[in-house]
Design a protein around this nucleic acid. Sequence first.
DNA 1: TGATAATTTGACCGGTTGGTAAACATTACA
DNA 2: TGTAATGTTTACCAACCGGTCAAATTATCA
Lengths: 220, 220
Amino acid sequence: MALPRAARTQRRTRIQEEKEEQILEAALEVFSLHGFRGATVDQIAEVAGMSKPNLLYYFRTKEAMHRALITRVLDTWLDPLREFDAEGNPVAEIRSYIRRKLEMARDFPRESRLFANEILQGAPNIEDELKGPLKELVDEKAAVIRAWAKAGKIAKCDPYHLIFSIWSTTQHYADFDVQVRAVLGQENAGDGRFEDAARFLEQLFLGGLNVSEQPASTSP
Amino acid sequence: MALPRAARTQRRTRIQEEKEEQILEAALEVFSLHGFRGATVDQIAEVAGMSKPNLLYYFRTKEAMHRALITRVLDTWLDPLREFDAEGNPVAEIRSYIRRKLEMARDFPRESRLFANEILQGAPNIEDELKGPLKELVDEKAAVIRAWAKAGKIAKCDPYHLIFSIWSTTQHYADFDVQVRAVLGQENAGDGRFEDAARFLEQLFLGGLNVSEQPASTSP
DNA sequence: TGATAATTTGACCGGTTGGTAAACATTACA
DNA sequence: TGTAATGTTTACCAACCGGTCAAATTATCA
């Protein structure tokens, strides 16, 4: 008899790799649009192009599928923050962090919505991830920002709320895309809004931190 | 035989007022946590403290309930933006707008999450509201902001993205509350984070718009 | 008070849900 | 090539879903 994924100890076959990939791709599509409870296994199976029992051969439950998806995506989702470099130039670091987050909102909106859905619904499955790895990473980067402020390289500010602000403003363009497009109207049908947003957010954050475009001394 | 809400032409009875209120309160609780598809009528009925058929006597379908809830909440949700006054002092206006939005995130997080869920899932039921009334209101206020910039009262910036930024940063404290609390740790158990956020966001936006704390001329 | 309208309930319905059992098909590999 | 492990499908299940119905209960007011 066959053993589904969770019970296997041997290395994965080619078919397993392919099918699990297909499934997670389809799961991302459906979960990101409807949340965990609103998504149905039938729908995911249909998007993945396979029968429901076949899908359940690879992931025994809907929850297992969701868990696998979240863990995989969370890791890459935090990459931009990890690249935040203490040794770098504050202005360049903050600017490129905003740019990268905005690029991710543009290129991977489903991943953003998956998290938004999860957090919005109380994060029942990833609370530990938030309080553990995520908090540690943010604590580390907050210390960097605080050091920059103490050295007078940027204005003094609460580093946690600075990070929250960058998260929220950039992810807004993925999570609230429908609203953004409705308000801007269809004349901005292309990706132009992302460039406009990048320009505005740089102005906002660099101005708000008292650093001009060319890294200069803080104002008196 | 009795006529449910939608078909009634007479004035509403006391019981109708009370029960519809109970139901919408319960619906807000459940919809804001699970989204439309993830919410169940049974669950709403249980929270409302009545039987499912009784609930369906007042709102004939789940969708009717959701529609009634959205329309009611959307109106009050936009109040802070409506109060944005062209004649006022730009610094005071922007500052008080941020404060009011943040207060709403603190005092009415469920309402914020209700919208977030709706937008996140493609806004199937309120797209018209977004493209109509909402867009008109934002267009109007964007013109005000642009005029302020033209008059040199604030820095030149894209007014739409400014509004998006205020929305996203403030609503973040309602929609992503679980994440915010996880990152800040339980030492900030009270509402202190809202005061910290208010301070930071004022610094960010007023600085980003080149206006100091005491309304002054723009820097050279 | 009594009759009429408004409200509430338990039983129920067809369709969908997440998930299973077992027969069948395909692949990997000795 | 044979065969054992892996992969796929059809048929199915019990629980749950949104919603209906008719009977029972309660409020209203002449």
